[in-house]
Design a protein around this nucleic acid. Structure first.
Lengths: 370, 370
DNA sequence: CTGAAAGCGCTAACAC
DNA sequence: GTGTTAGCGCTTTCAG
């Protein structure tokens, strides 16, 4: 009998009490020591109400008596309650998050835009899931897929890279809201900067300033922005009946970052100088970072800016201010903000046609071309 | 009877069929048209197995017959199944995500570190939730809280800002793994760069090069990195029995970004030049961005680098290469990677004491001090 | 090896 | 107003 009693006890102990004791202890530890793992059930128990009521209170549902509300709130605060992120998201069938698929290489642009995105997203209380692409040629699709795992995000922001054609139907079919920033596709909302217009404005300024022999140093023309800026330059020249001096035009040979580097600008300027006896009266450069290289090359040859030659850049990066560079400003922070706004608009109303917002850049006049 | 029949029918129709029909239709649309919203139930039904089995197959559980596995996999592929992110995370009680609380202002540093983080995190298949802090004085705590909402992430990376003392117990109590990057707190793992050592190495190089009158231009000494770099400089001087020339030492007045700007360097150098008849033979500058300003100021006065005065910077930012700046390189990409590794280590084993990893920076010799 | 069932923590429709 | 219950979609025992 002693034996069977022990056996019985053992069985009973293991299967029931043990479990319960553990649970009780565990809850106790959680509540008292960790302030962690508190659920609406804990609150409901303490406040002597149902979990539905707790949920209602926590979600600001008005159909609760003030008395109950107070009580629940008090308990919740005392227990240091925090809703479980993913339980909410699952039940609500909403991710409360958006993702950004963004290339890392365009550093200057990157930071500013991201700042805008972050600030705006804060207004909505959403999370930002970042997918920084180091190598577009191999990683874009991978990250697109990750960022669209079912339920993960309510929308995606896609930056500065060629949107892979194969994924247009992917997004359309699943109805995942997406907005393209600094890149374009006819089927999706996009936010871009009018490079053509910016270059046009800069060139026009040069022309109105009385410069005749206007040169241009441009990054590789395969790159869309470079091409558009070049086109704007040509258009302004022809609109104002000015000559395009072939000899004062240099396209970067440097392939790194499509030629949008200081060194590419430096080299291109050296080439320009070496192949001419005279120098142009002004140079429009396709980016600030190149322009800094250009100015270096000029000063090495003892050529003064802006006295001997005027220089205008493009982008208005942080350093442009330091160098007193006259340039075309891209409102990057603003672009980030608008991108988020646009995305939320899409998320809240699956509307009609895609919209294409174009920001017109503005001229910032500093020392290199007064 | 006609009436009661209709009534009955109506009731029946509304309460049962209607609902079911809708569900069937809906599922149909989903499956066929949208490839979306497929659940393991759909797969189980199609493959004629239980949902448990489906889950097992999908999770690579070995206790499934090959035959069943094949069948399930086939159906899953055909239906274009994707697991619901948050359902998984909820059931697994694991977030499969980490967050980064990072200030936006330190742009150069920022990008590189983040690249490292992103690349490493990719290995683990985790998501990165980004909280970019624009205004540390007001936003840090807000973002810390957001990033620690229950269940949201498995760990957090905290960058470059003073960790708020009030939150030490917050993290400790909840047992949320955190690693500090580019900042320090005795109670948490941290990864920093040995600024002292870096400055020491740079100064030593200057000394061994035979320079006697070595000056220093430093950002605001309230800033920890600036202070540590200054201390390293002094130590090297005294270790090698060199004089510290008070007159060739300038601390930035500029408060913006603690004086880590091109303009601050430029102004400080002007001040150095204006208050001495002679110039030092070498200048150690507390950051590359300032060094660029210093070089500008020097060249404006016709002082040649490195012929008249040698310059060494700190950081090795992108532009340093362009300017041929000799500098102290911080392995930022590497730091990002290691930070993630360390965090995962913490997440997988709640170990003992916090570890403090210090990277020793290395000297990069370029033109400004051969 | 596999199906059924009990969670994970929360929301929302449904009764009373 | 408020408690109960049925999901959200997946994981993980627990029996066979």
């Amino acid at each position: 009998m002693g034996y069977s009693l022990r056996k019985l006890f053992k069985w009973w102990f293991l299967n029931l009490t043990m479990k319960k004791i553990f649970i009780i202890l565990w809850k106790h530890f959680q509540n008292k020591w960790f302030f962690y793992g508190i659920t609406i059930y804990d609150i409901a128990r303490e406040a002597k109400v149902g979990i539905g009521t707790v949920s209602r209170v926590l979600n600001g549902n008005p159909h609760v008596s003030d008395e109950t509300r107070r009580k629940v709130l008090e308990v919740a605060r005392r227990l240091n309650y925090q809703p479980h992120t993913y339980a909410q998201r699952l039940a609500k069938q909403k991710a409360y998050a958006i993702s950004a698929v963004i290339p890392f290489f365009i550093s200057y642009f990157f930071i500013e835009v991201l700042r805008g995105v972050q600030d705006k997203i804060l207004d909505y209380g959403f999370d930002l899931v970042l997918y920084g692409v180091n190598d577009p040629s191999t990683q874009v699709e991978h990250y697109i897929q990750k960022s669209t795992h079912r339920g993960k995000v309510d929308g995606v922001l896609f930056f500065s890279m060629k949107f892979p054609e194969a994924y247009t139907s992917y997004f359309k079919q699943r109805g995942i809201p997406i907005v393209l920033v600094d890149t374009f596709h006819p089927k999706f909302d996009s936010i871009t900067v009018d490079n053509f217009q910016g270059a046009y404005i800069a060139t026009k300024h040069l022309i109105e300033h009385g410069y005749e022999k206007i040169g241009m140093i441009v990054a590789r023309l395969e790159s869309m922005p470079a091409k558009q800026r070049f086109d704007g330059f040509r258009k302004a020249l022809s609109d104002y009946g000015k000559i395009f001096y072939e000899e004062y035009f240099v396209e970067s040979r440097d392939t790194r970052l499509d030629g949008f580097t200081r060194d590419a600008g430096y080299q291109a300027c050296k080439e320009l100088l070496s192949r001419n006896r005279e120098i142009p009266s002004a140079i429009f450069v396709s980016s600030d970072i190149q322009a800094i290289g250009v100015i270096e090359a000029l000063s090495e040859r003892g050529i003064k800016v802006p006295d001997d030659v005027a220089v205008i850049g493009f982008d208005d990066i942080e350093l442009a201010k330091d160098f007193g560079l006259t340039t075309v400003r891209q409102p990057m922070y603003e672009i980030g903000k608008v991108a988020v706004e646009k995305l939320f608009e899409r998320m809240n109303s699956r509307k009609t046609k895609p919209e294409h917002i174009k920001f017109t850049p503005e001229l910032v006049i500093r020392k290199t071309c007064p």
